[in-house]
Each structure stands twice: as C-alpha cells, then as structure tokens.
C-alpha cells in the first residue's frame, strides 16, 4: 500500500471519530442546558468550547456563551476552521484519496452522509433542527464503521484505519475527562468531596457511557468509579484502556504483516510499562490531570511514530 494512502485511511478515520465525538459532546451539553438553570447551561457551553480547545477562536468572534451560538460555531462557523462540517469534508476528501483501498460500501456510507450533512450544515442550525442533526452526525460514524467491519479486507489498510480511530477516541475521552475534572475539582482531592453528580453524569454522557456505567454501578455516581470506568475498564469501547488495547493490537498486526517493529511499537511498550499497571488510587495520588496530560502526549507521539514508521510522507 502507498504511504500516502495509509495516511489517508488513518486521517479519514480520525476525522470521522472526531466528528462523532464532537456531536456527542454537543448532545450532552444540549441535554444539560435543557435540564439546568441558565448559569449552569452557560458554564456547560463554555466547557464544550474549552474541551475542544476553541476558546481563542470563539472569543474572537463572540461575547457570550449561549447554546445557539456555540453549536453553530462548533458545527459550521467559517471562523472556526476545525468545525464539524470541515471534519466531514476531510473524511470524504481522505476517502476519495484512498478510494482504491476502501470498499464501495464504505465509500457510499461516507458519501451519502456527506451529501446530506454538508447541505444541512451550509445554513445556520436552529433549535428545532440541532438534535436530529447531531444524531445524524453520530450515525454517520456508526454506518461507516458498520460498512467497514462488514466489507473491508483485514490487511494493513484496516489496521491504519483502526489506529486512527483509537488514537482519536482516546484523545477525545482523555480531553473530556480532563476538562471536567479541572472544572469540578480545581483544588480539592477527590475523596469525600460532595460532587455535582449531574456534572459527572455529563462526562459519562459525552462519551456514551451513562447507561452502561449506571448498569455496572447500580446507579451510584461518584468520581472514583467514573474515572476507573473511563480510564481502566477495558470492556468499555471508549475507555482509555480499551483504546490502548485496540491500538496495541493494530500495531502488533502491522508489525507482523511488515515483518518489522517500528518506533510506534517501542513507544507503546514504554507507555505500557509506565501506566498499564496503575490502579485508580495511584492515578489520583499522582494527580489525574498530570496522568491525563502524560497520556495525551504519549498517545499523540504514537500517532506521529506510525506516520514515520509507515512512510506516510515523503
């Protein structure tokens, strides 16, 4: 496979994941804004922008954090070059670049959804339309992954695509967790503090984990349990542990088909020895924020190493 094609598959799935995660984040915020008071709602919209790292761009264009402004900014504003419309465009662009290495099913799932969503996102998104639109963006991910699983050859292209998916997903979960933790526990230790359970539930909702978490924990919402779930529970497909396992599998499969282990495998091993044995108490002791920052840096470094190992660029 061409290095350029591998790059396209990797980024096609990163952007797909990013669009989906962004939609989930907005859906969770939307729900919160509907159920809480105005000040909480504004804080929630502010945290969405902060989680996405868009404060500077947002504040250059807007003075207040109301929902309508925030979701339009995140979804489609030209003043925000990292908007969801651009992400979906990047998914399709990369799919076209890699057209000879994806199945027609995958291409049609991408193209169908893009045609529909690009048109919807060309105009401002109002209060009544936003819910259905966010669901459609989320479903785009579901459909593309479904077509992908059902029709793609399990060769290197498959692993590049999955590596992109899990690097992006881990990045997203870690950022959401870090942002909430930062907002909720500016200076406190987690033990025994009385927490805004609604806010923690919000974290779970943003990563589609609310239902399954309360099922596992009989409805008990508490910080320690949530962090353990999102960081360490390798059964939950959006947890950091799950993403790391999946990424480790991808790197292993790539190394086997290529007959060499590159820098990415080495970085993965290094981070395994540093973090995979940690339990939740140790993470809190050393600081969740510090843990997450370290995790994000390692995750990003593995992504760069894959590009290097497999000659994504000339």
């Amino acid at each position: 496979m061409l290095g350029r094609t591998a790059n396209s598959l990797f980024w096609m799935f990163r952007y797909l994941e990013r669009a989906e995660n962004t939609a989930r984040l907005l859906e969770a915020a939307l729900r919160m804004a509907l159920t809480r008071d105005l000040a909480t709602a504004e804080a929630e919209w502010r945290s969405v922008i902060a989680t996405l790292g868009l404060q500077a761009a947002f504040e250059a264009n807007h003075d207040s954090y109301d929902g309508l402004t925030v979701w339009n900014f995140v979804l489609r504003a030209p003043g925000n070059p990292a908007n969801v419309r651009e992400m979906l465009g990047a998914v399709r662009f990369n799919a076209r670049m890699a057209r000879t290495n994806i199945s027609s099913d995958v291409w049609e799932a991408v193209n169908d959804n893009w045609m529909k969503l690009d048109k919807l996102l060309a105009r401002p998104v109002g209060q009544t339309a936003v819910g259905e639109l966010l669901a459609s963006i989320r479903r785009t991910g579901t459909q593309v992954h479904g077509a992908f699983d059902g029709s793609m050859l399990r060769d290197e292209g498959y692993h590049f695509a999955r590596a992109g998916t899990f690097i992006e997903r881990a990045d997203s979960t870690a950022r959401i967790l870090d942002m909430k933790y930062f907002l909720l526990l500016p200076s406190l230790s987690y033990v025994g503090s009385s927490l805004d359970t609604g806010q923690w539930e919000q974290v779970l909702r943003s990563v589609a984990g609310a239902r399954v978490y309360s099922w596992l924990n009989a409805g008990q919402i508490e910080a320690r349990g949530i962090v353990e779930f999102l960081v360490l529970d390798d059964r939950f497909p959006r947890s950091l542990a799950f993403c790391r396992n999946a990424l480790r599998d991808c790197l292993g499969a790539l190394a086997r088909t290529h007959g060499v282990e590159g820098g990415a495998v080495a970085l993965m091993r290094d981070s395994d020895t540093r973090i995979s044995h940690l339990c939740v108490d140790q993470i809190f002791e050393a600081g969740l924020h510090e843990f997450l920052i370290d995790f994000l840096a390692r995750n990003a470094a593995i992504g760069r190493a894959i590009a290097e190992d497999y000659r994504f660029h000339a």
């Binding site: 061409l2 290095g3 350029r4 057209r99 000879t100 000339a314």
Partner: peptide
C-alpha cells in the same frame, strides 16, 4: 481511481514516485 480500483493497480501521484536504481519506484508503507 475507478480504473485503478477495478484493475487492482495502485493509484499514484507524482509525489509518490521517485527514480532510484534505474527504476521508477513508488513510496509504499514498506
């Protein structure tokens, strides 16, 4: 893209190619 796909050939751009050892070679993941 269509023809490359249907033929099972690689679809290359100029930036994927270079001349080495007397051959035109494409940059693959290997």
């Amino acid at each position: 893209a269509f023809l490359a796909d249907q033929m099972g050939a690689e679809l290359v751009e100029g930036s994927d190619l270079r001349v080495t050892e007397g051959r035109v070679q494409m940059r693959t993941t290997r």
